[in-house]
Simulated assay, not measured.
Amino acid sequence: MIIERLSDARGRVRAGWLDSRHTFSFGSYYDPAWMGFGCLRVINEDRVDPGAGFAPHRHANMEILSYVLSGGLAHQDSTGGGGTIRPGELQWMSAGHGVEHSEFNASKTEPVHFLQIWVQPDRLNAQPAYAQPAAVEAKDGEFVLRASRDGVEGGVPIRQDVKLYSLGLAQGTQARRSLESGRMYWLQVAQGRIEANGRVLQAGDALGFADESGELLLTGSGDSVADVLWFDLPVVG
């Protein structure tokens, strides 16, 4: 089964300083048809005005990833984690048994554009944790592992049987990925334009794959380098 989630069909919330697109139900946006994809629970595309942001608030039992597309995102949390996330960086915060955090635009003059991603963990009430490794330089046509279960295969040590890759695709560049029927996959176009087995996808578009096998061919088809995220997920009941 292949699920298509187009950018314009996502939920949208505007709150003055915030313009947010929700791939799945979140906050005031609720659609019972879009409650998540396996253990992937949230992909919010947020644009935050200069100097504005999310005041301290609390989460528990969720793996939270922030991926900045442009600008800078200032983060602080009750684990002692903090810093400014820049384009190319993937920040991980495991809320565990409970953590309070805030995120603000680090600039007083420029907006920040980022994705916030939530993954349901494979354990409950663990010790909260935080990591913000250095930015990864995208290599054209190469999948780069950014997160894996407990970090044993590289990337941040997410507490779930998930592998998250980033991929850059210039116009005409191709990359291939094998699909296995015992896994679920989510393809998210963060920026740019690509084709996936001939299907055109723009920034914000996504495809989900469940009980699929074979090969997926991705081709860059825009004037700028496309920024793509690839989630390799466990099958959940």
Score class of each variant (00 low, 15 high):
Met1Val: 14
Ile2Gly: 00
Ile2Met: 01
Ile2Lys: 02
Arg5Tyr: 08
Leu6Cys: 06
Leu6Arg: 12
Leu6Trp: 11
Ala9Gly: 05
Arg10Asn: 04
Gly11Lys: 10
Ala15Leu: 11
Trp17Ser: 04
Ser20Gln: 08
Thr23His: 02
Phe26Pro: 01
Ser28Pro: 10
Tyr29Gly: 00
Ala33Asp: 12
Met35Gly: 05
Gly36Trp: 08
Phe37Met: 11
Phe37Arg: 11
Gly38Val: 15
Cys39Phe: 07
Cys39Asn: 09
Arg41Glu: 09
Arg41Asp: 06
Arg41Ala: 02
Val48Gly: 02
Val48Ile: 15
Pro50Ile: 15
Pro50Val: 14
Ala52Thr: 13
Gly53Asp: 13
Pro56Glu: 12
Pro56Thr: 14
His57Cys: 03
His57Arg: 07
Asn61Leu: 04
Leu65Thr: 13
Ser66Ile: 14
Val68Asp: 02
Leu69Gln: 05
Leu69Asn: 00
Leu69Trp: 02
Ser70Lys: 12
Gly72Ala: 12
Leu73His: 11
Ala74Asp: 11
Ala74Val: 09
His75Ile: 10
Asp77Cys: 05
Asp77Ser: 05
Asp77Glu: 13
Gly80Trp: 09
Gly80Glu: 06
Gly83Met: 14
Thr84Pro: 03
Ile85Asp: 01
Ile85Pro: 10
Arg86Thr: 14
Glu89Ser: 02
Glu89Leu: 01
Met93Ser: 06
Gly96Tyr: 08
Gly96Met: 08
Gly96Arg: 06
His97Ile: 12
His97Gly: 04
Val99Trp: 05
Glu100Ile: 13
Phe104Ile: 15
Ala106Glu: 13
Ser107Phe: 05
Glu110Lys: 13
Glu110Ser: 14
His113Gly: 00
His113Leu: 10
Phe114Glu: 06
Phe114Gly: 06
Trp118Asp: 01
Val119Phe: 07
Gln120Pro: 00
Pro121Gln: 07
Pro121Gly: 09
Arg123Leu: 11
Arg123Pro: 00
Asn125Met: 14
Asn125Phe: 13
Gln127Lys: 12
Pro128Tyr: 01
Ala129Ser: 15
Ala129Trp: 01
Tyr130Asp: 07
Gln132Tyr: 00
Pro133Arg: 03
Pro133Ala: 00
Ala134Asp: 15
Ala138Leu: 15
Ala138Glu: 05
Lys139Glu: 15
Asp140His: 03
Gly141Lys: 04
Glu142Trp: 02
Arg146Asn: 07
Ala147Pro: 07
Asp150His: 09
Gly151Tyr: 14
Gly154Ser: 06
Gly155Ile: 09
Pro157Arg: 05
Ile158Thr: 02
Ile158Leu: 07
Gln160His: 05
Gln160Thr: 13
Lys163Pro: 08
Lys163Val: 14
Tyr165Glu: 01
Leu167Ser: 01
Leu167Asn: 05
Gly168His: 02
Gln171Tyr: 01
Thr173Leu: 02
Ala175Arg: 00
Glu180Ser: 11
Gly182Glu: 09
Tyr185Trp: 12
Leu187Ala: 07
Leu187Val: 13
Gln191Ala: 09
Gly192Ile: 11
Arg193Pro: 04
Ala196Tyr: 05
Ala196Ile: 15
Asn197Ser: 11
Asn197Val: 13
Gly198Cys: 10
Arg199Asn: 10
Leu201Ile: 08
Leu201Asn: 06
Ala203Ile: 09
Gly204Phe: 04
Asp205Val: 08
Ala206Lys: 03
Gly208Arg: 03
Phe209Ile: 06
Ala210Leu: 03
Leu216Cys: 07
Gly222Leu: 06
Ala226Val: 10
Val228Asp: 00
Leu229Val: 11
Phe231Ala: 03
Leu233Ile: 11
Pro234Glu: 05
Gly237Gln: 10
